[in-house]
Simulated scan of single mutants.
Amino acid sequence: MKIRCIWEHNGNDSILYAENFIGAFTRGSSKDLAIQKMPVEIKSYLMWKGSLIPDSFEIEIVQEKQSNLTISDADSDVLFDEERKELSSFEYADLKALALKSAQDFLTLYQSIPDKDKSRVPVRTTFYGQIPRTAFEMYLHTKNVNDYYFGEIGVSTNNEGSILECRERGFAVLESQPDFLKNAVCLGSYNEEWSLRKVLRRFIWHDRIHAKAMYRMAVKTFGSHAVPNVFLFDI
């Protein structure tokens, strides 16, 4: 199976996104290291989706983005070439379902944490401030991009309720707008280009980043069998 990848990098630091596995990604201090991690990420991603896993993978770089952002902390502003294309109703339904599954699974993982304010993760600062350390901080950070992501494509919503509830509400507002499937490219904050396809990808990608961090934190803090591996990460 071919994995079509977008390579975003700042110097040697790299993020590799799988264009045909929306939301799947790897990071590394070089492109080669990110590539090496990709088959494991895709196997985990396919198991999470309940899809069959192929016998082999072939990785192809189809787009490159040189960035000035802090790639090592997963800062990103790339818009995939594919994310400029219109969406069919079937594509939208599939991607929306996956974004909602991701939100539900993130909520399930969060709710399973025995103590949501306890963490053995050390303090660290990133481009957006101090890194979330506890389950509560990780959950709040992940949930609270809802109005930001939707707002970048002109959808006015909020972050009230659970991560699943606020995401569902955002999709409902989106779907009330005419021609939303045309996938218009919008110039959002910091002159970053956004589209509906990008918002869908960013939700799943952002969930995976912080679900992986939350699961690792929980294993380190509470033990390897204390919480379910809801996303089936290979950690």
Results as ranks from 00 to 15, higher is better:
131 I>W: 14
30 S>G: 03
119 S>G: 00
228 P>S: 00
29 S>R: 15
189 S>F: 11
235 I>Q: 13
37 K>P: 03
137 E>D: 02
38 M>Q: 02
100 L>C: 07
62 V>L: 05
166 C>G: 04
190 Y>R: 14
109 L>N: 00
216 R>Y: 05
185 V>E: 01
129 G>C: 05
28 G>C: 13
152 E>Y: 04
21 F>L: 12
113 I>V: 13
182 K>Q: 11
81 D>L: 15
196 L>Y: 08
16 L>E: 08
158 N>A: 02
210 H>G: 11
107 L>F: 10
182 K>Y: 04
128 Y>D: 15
36 Q>W: 06
48 W>H: 09
186 C>K: 13
177 Q>Y: 00
196 L>G: 09
201 R>D: 09
67 S>K: 06
148 Y>H: 12
142 T>K: 00
1 M>Q: 09
67 S>G: 06
123 V>A: 12
24 A>T: 02
172 A>L: 09
51 S>E: 15
206 H>W: 04
113 I>W: 01
182 K>D: 10
179 D>R: 06
215 Y>V: 03
150 F>K: 01
114 P>L: 05
200 L>Y: 09
184 A>G: 10
173 V>S: 01
160 E>D: 11
207 D>S: 13
202 R>W: 07
76 S>F: 15
169 R>Y: 12
170 G>L: 02
107 L>G: 02
221 T>K: 06
208 R>T: 10
62 V>N: 03
198 K>W: 08
226 A>Q: 03
22 I>D: 11
25 F>W: 14
54 P>W: 06
75 D>I: 10
181 L>A: 00
232 L>N: 13
48 W>K: 07
144 N>R: 12
213 A>Q: 15
163 I>P: 05
80 F>Y: 13
56 S>Q: 09
103 A>L: 07
77 D>V: 08
